[in-house]
Design a protein around this nucleic acid. Structure first.
Lengths: 208, 208, 208, 208
DNA sequence: AATGAATGAGGTTTCATTCAT
DNA sequence: CATGAATGAAACCTCATTCAT
């Protein structure tokens, strides 16, 4: 029956429009990540996606709006994960472990977006349209710095720690991983997180 | 006679005063670092330097040649320092300490160049003109990876270390510091190096 | 049966309901008049009409053909009115009065078309498709100029009149009214015509 | 002597930069007036001026800024003339005569600008950048309407005049002349003004 | 050394139009 | 009849680069 086809996949009816959009954004993200936002031409994205440059403008307002959608989508999912961790009431060490693990998971799922974020966010945060990048960065700092400080106060982390400096080192190292991480490689995100945490928490030197 | 000056140092006739060149390159590096190479217009550099865009071409062949000169100068000095460290015959731990300290010193002296290197090198390494970037990266990897491996073999570093992964983390953390480091701030390069080494070598967690 | 309807009026099958066409043209005319032909996008018209840009092409061949239909329809009705006046055998003054009155009536009924005509006709008259605009302008000139000349010859209009100049002034003032006239406002078209004729025929100065 | 050349034309030293600018603006104005602002391509202007489209951007920020400069320059000169007339303390009839004459003089000197103003000002007045167009229009209305009202009050103009309507007719007729006026033709601006004033003030009909 | 002006290639974006569904 | 997606031409604009002065 003709109705059978329509009722067969009712769940798929809900998100019908984003289908193409999402594919195009994925392509765009890949190219942005590989060549940098400025150096990426709209034509390059279109080529990669198999249509003409002008046709992209049926789906998106501008090159910038593609970037915007890529970054805001990523940050949305990132904060969903982070907020869950922060709401779990874990101790400082466990919170750091969970945040690091969550971060590498995000890199695994949104590698191009993370790479773009890493390279361009400082540049973009100034523009009004990307104000949410600055907001996110502030929340980010609050979450990490707060946890580190709590750890020092609780006697879990070394008392001589310069937390601000430590925060910067940890933050950068985690995200910069997006520049070399390849999904499906030797290590999954959890394995990488474990190695990284082992280094940061316990050091690479052999203990006396 | 006017010829006296010229014949006195015949070799110096071609590149008259490197003073201006250096100043212009410093300006260019600052702008490249702040906005990214692609996003930087020649006019912007010229504005910042107080002349017109076209006038820059009296001093340099092209925008790319400015970038080239900035990066190769930086890498030249970097390797002078690194080679000295590597030739000193230190133990693995001391070598790592010396390399990290040397790196932060370079960041202190060449912050814009390092920032540019960090952001653009992956992109540039492919082009023939910037082949030395890839070479440098290889030497770099060899130095660091070798030292880490030697440390593990010597029982100085933990035996369960994934040296490749560790190398990446360490490398990135060091260089990424160029994006937030401000010369003349709270900590000098040596202090930052010490903090960083303390974290990487001994971990941030309190020992039992 | 469904076929009954179709076979009932075979002649009407091709151009089914001019109702929709007319409504779409009215919308198009409004937008053309408000923003100018070139500055009007097909999408804007479609938006205003409540369908998608592509869908307009089911009804019309092109944007230009909409313009064409709007203008030719208008001119058709205009000349029906003018020809009736000119065939009535009135005296020069009465002819002028009737033409002016008829013109303001047309503005009342076809304001957008008149506004378009006013703004674009000089531009369009050159293109072959719109040759009828030039023809119309010639007929127009002949009718007005002829009447003015007749009036001077008959001693009804002042003998020192530069008829060509007068023609231009009168012609422009009448049609330019389309840019500010709003149907349903204070004055109806006949009232405006009366005021205008009073000014042009007798002047605004008080007679001695 | 070399100094002779420099001191020969000291007066020309003052306005050295606008030389090329003004010529380019004149060309642009001509093209805008002939084809309409929207329908005019930057390339067309460049072709007409004998350089490449991109080169225009050395002199102007944008197509819009050319339009802006054309219109604001014109309005500046127009109001210099109008203000002088209004400040002269003439009677209503003489003021109208002087304003009309001044207007035709402006058309004579700025024909393209007037034509552009006539065609595009209503469209542009809404945009913030061209707010001065709306301001000008208000001043304009105040000047003309006020004079007409004063004339009626003084018994110089007919008491049954609808001044608002009269204002519109007079205003349009004057400016619309820019669409057909050709400098250097049969009539100079003063002659046209005289003819026009004769029509408007005394009417075209023969007095009884 | 530097300026003013221009070039020419290429970038982003717009838009009338087409067409399978 | 209408939609959604795409095309392709052309528009505005940017920018590295050149060159006569």
């Amino acid at each position: 029956m003709s109705t059978a086809k329509k009722t067969a996949k009712p769940a798929a009816v809900t998100p019908p429009p984003p289908a193409r959009r999402r594919a195009l954004l994925a392509t765009a993200a890949e190219v942005f990540a590989a060549h940098g936002y400025d150096a990426t031409t709209v034509r390059r994205i279109a080529d990669e996606a198999g249509l003409l440059a002008g046709s992209l403008y049926y789906h998106f307002d501008s090159k910038e709006s593609m970037l915007d959608e890529i970054l805001s989508t990523f940050l949305g999912e990132l904060w969903a994960g982070y907020d869950a961790v922060l709401a779990a009431g874990l101790g400082p060490r466990e919170t750091i472990e969970a945040l690091v693990t969550e971060s590498f998971r995000e890199i695994d799922r949104h590698r191009p977006a993370v790479a773009i974020y890493q390279k361009e966010s400082q540049q973009l945060a100034g523009r009004p349209r990307f104000g949410y990048l600055a907001d996110s960065q502030q929340k980010f700092e609050k979450a990490w710095l707060g946890t580190l400080e709590r750890g020092v106060a609780d006697g879990v982390f070394r008392p001589d720690l310069d937390v601000r400096l430590t925060y910067r080192f940890v933050r950068d190292t985690v995200w910069v991983a997006a520049s070399w991480y390849r999904p499906g490689g030797h290590h999954g995100p959890e394995e990488i997180a474990r190695q990284y945490l082992s280094m940061v928490l316990d050091g690479i030197a052999v203990r006396d």
